[in-house]
Amino acid sequence: MKNFITTYCHISGDTCSLNGKVLATLDTSSEDGWLKQLYRYSRQTYPKFYKMDMLSQIGYLASGFIKSNHVTELSEYADDEIALVFANRFSSAESDIRFQKSYQEQKAPSPAMFVYTLPNIVMGEIAIANKWYGENMFAVLPKFDADWYVNYSQILLQADAKAVLGGWINISEEKPEAFVFLVEAAESGVEFSTDNLHSLSGID
């Protein structure tokens, strides 16, 4: 069976959409920040969410939206059959700067900030939240590279993975640019190719 992109989610600085349809937009009158608004919208209860850095919050939210709108339960896959393939441009820079401030300005290095100064932590959070024991890969690439995702995902899908949750989560000047997608053998969806992935991503 061929591999298809069956569900995908975008989160920008003011809009969250699933499969191209808008789920939520930024409420500028709210006291809550944008990601907290999305957390409320998602109706999930996961107090750890507030401790996460932005990268992890976005990964957690996007994977949650994909899961809840998937045609079948993702739990039908064995606990190690969903691989995570994530990438971005700036690694964990946003958290790195925050941690650096904790020791340079507040004179107290924060352990809770330090543990988020690695880009792969977002995959750890998704794995923990879902009890997924599969393969993880985080790459830092100068720009969104559909070839990388397709090539590496195909390697995993030809080995033990049955599905790949891919993600590009970049944070630039505290604004997110996120595209998270699920690839699996399916009857329908968007065929998993470099061109299709690039055009769905909406990223230049």
Binding site: D79, V115, Y116, G124, E125, I128, N130, N136, A159
Partner: peptide
């Protein structure tokens, strides 16, 4: 070889 996540704790 392969990789696997513990799905347990981030640190």
């Amino acid at each position: 070889g392969t990789s696997a996540n513990d799905a347990n704790h981030i640190s």
